[in-house]
Computed example of a mutant assay.
Amino acid sequence: MAQASKIVDGKKQCGKCREWRPVENFYKNSRAATGLASACKACTLVVHQTAQYHVRYRERDPEGVAAEKRRRHIKTMYGVTPEWYDAMLATQGGVCAICGQPEVVMRYGKLKLLAVDHDHVTGVSRGLLCQGCNQGIGHLGEDLERMEAAARYLETHMDADPQC
């Protein structure tokens, strides 16, 4: 495991060029033990200028980049393949398996994907839910008795006159 570079007399050794430089020559990095990036600003600049592979790749194949980003997102967030997700979405008609409505929650200006519901004990994926339904069963602890009690409670108070 790499050893964290120490700050000595206001200087730190660059992990790239190995030169000792003043701490002002390093970008801040709150995750690093020293609070500074491992490479100096000059080395960081060289890396960013010469390694613009992501920009060139994005220009060459923007659809491929978007597809790969979606694949990683679905696999990382939900633990399923995009093929499974797309098949389940088609089976459900593009709507939540509980309420039958499409997702309406936006994040960063984009419509969120339906969440993959799964059994927290077995890990088996069950279906796709909107954020409201997914959080609802989560807050009730996936406990059928609590869900039934909540339904009875709502039925009992459905026709009651509102009191102020």
Rank of each mutant, 00 (worst) to 15 (best):
H54C: 02
Y57A: 02
T81S: 15
H120M: 15
A67C: 04
R72W: 04
A87M: 13
A51C: 08
A32T: 06
S38R: 04
H48Q: 09
C17W: 06
I74G: 03
N29M: 10
S30E: 13
M147R: 05
R107S: 12
A33F: 04
L113H: 12
S30R: 14
M147A: 01
R72G: 08
D86M: 12
Q135A: 12
Y108N: 13
A90H: 12
E142F: 04
D61N: 15
V80K: 06
V116H: 05
S30K: 14
E142V: 08
C96I: 10
T81P: 06
C133A: 00
P102Y: 06
A66N: 11
A42Q: 00
L129G: 02
G35M: 04
L45C: 06
P62T: 04
K75V: 12
A87Q: 15
E142I: 02
Q92R: 10
G123P: 01
M88V: 15
Y78E: 12
V55K: 05
L154H: 14
H139N: 12
Y85D: 13
V95R: 11
G127P: 07
A51Q: 08
Q92N: 03
Q101E: 13
L144H: 09
R146S: 08
A42S: 02
E19K: 15
V124L: 15
A87S: 15
R70G: 08
G141V: 06
Y57M: 01
K28T: 11
A67D: 09
C17Y: 13
E148G: 05
T34W: 12
C133D: 08
V105W: 08
Q92D: 00
E83K: 11
A150L: 13
G123F: 07
Q49M: 01
D61K: 14
W20P: 07
G35F: 06
Q135Y: 04
P22C: 11
H73R: 14
H48N: 04
T76A: 15
K69H: 10
V23F: 03
A39S: 10
Q52I: 03
Y78I: 09
D143E: 09
T44A: 02
G79S: 09
T91F: 08
A150K: 06
Q92S: 07
G109T: 03
K69I: 04
G141H: 07
L128Q: 10
K28Q: 14
G109P: 03
L45W: 09
C130Q: 02
C130Y: 02
T34K: 14
G123V: 12
R31T: 06
L113C: 05
R31S: 00
T44S: 13
C130I: 00
E83L: 10
Q131A: 11
F26G: 01
C40K: 09
E19A: 15
V80C: 08
A39I: 01
Y27V: 01
E19Y: 14
C96R: 03
H48R: 10
Y57P: 03
R56Y: 02
A37E: 05
A51R: 02
Y53K: 05
V80H: 03
L129A: 01
P102E: 06
S30A: 13
